[in-house]
Amino acid sequence: MRRFFTLLPCLAILTACGVGDRASPWRSVFVDKEKVCFSVNKNDVLSRYNISSTQGGKYKEFASVQTLSLSYPASCMKLALTPGYAYGVSYTLNNINYRYVFFIDNDWNVQSSQ
């Protein structure tokens, strides 16, 4: 848990330094063991995303695409995230930049940091 609170400020800063700015609103994403979904609404259009984390003292980008146009179910990505770490997400949905930071504990419980 201490690792979460140590990495949280770093991830918040890294997420804010992406394409979005510090004024980007928070919006959660759906996370489970197999995938991350930015929206489950078929009318939403995902046009950019970045998922990153600092693990073992090194910055790691899990997924990043800057130009696309996806709606549900294509707005869900299969990713192999590692429990025990915090993750920063920035993405653009319906031309609005969003950000989100979450922690996955060792039992795969996802905790929002907002």
Rank of each mutant, 00 (worst) to 15 (best):
D21C: 02
S90K: 02
S64A: 12
Y98L: 04
L81Y: 03
L7G: 10
V40I: 11
Y72F: 15
V29K: 02
K60N: 12
L93M: 05
N109I: 11
S113P: 00
Y100A: 05
I104K: 09
W26L: 12
M1V: 11
N106Q: 07
C76W: 02
L68V: 13
L46C: 11
C37T: 03
S47G: 07
L11E: 08
K33D: 04
I96P: 01
I104Q: 09
T82Y: 00
Y85H: 14
T6E: 15
R27T: 01
V40K: 15
V65L: 10
K42N: 02
V89E: 01
N95E: 13
S69M: 06
C76E: 07
N94M: 10
S112E: 12
I96N: 07
Y49N: 00
L70E: 14
F103P: 03
F102S: 06
N97S: 15
Y85N: 14
T6M: 12
Y87R: 07
L14R: 12
L68H: 03
W108G: 07
G57C: 10
S28F: 06
A12R: 12
T82V: 13
G84A: 05
Y49I: 03
G18P: 04
Y87I: 06
C37V: 04
L11D: 04
N97F: 00
I96T: 15
N106P: 02
F102T: 04
I13T: 13
D21R: 02
R22F: 12
S112M: 05
K60T: 13
Y91A: 07
L7Y: 11
F5C: 07
K78H: 12
A74R: 13
Q55W: 00
S113M: 12
G20R: 15
L93D: 08
R22C: 06
T54C: 12
T15K: 09
S75T: 09
S69E: 12
N97M: 08
S71M: 02
N97I: 00
F62E: 01
R27D: 05
Q66F: 05
Y91C: 06
R2D: 11
V19Q: 08
Y49V: 02
S112Q: 11
I96F: 05
P83W: 10
D32I: 07
R22M: 09
S47K: 13
K58G: 01
G18F: 01
A16K: 12
L46K: 08
I104H: 10
D107P: 00
Y100I: 02
Y98N: 04
D107S: 13
G18Q: 08
T82F: 00
V29E: 06
V29N: 03
L68R: 07
L8P: 00
S53L: 01
E61Y: 01
W26K: 08
A23C: 07
T92M: 10
Y91D: 02
T15V: 15
D44F: 08
E61K: 09
V31G: 01
T67Y: 10
K42D: 08
N41Q: 05
L11R: 09
S112T: 15
C17R: 14
A23W: 08
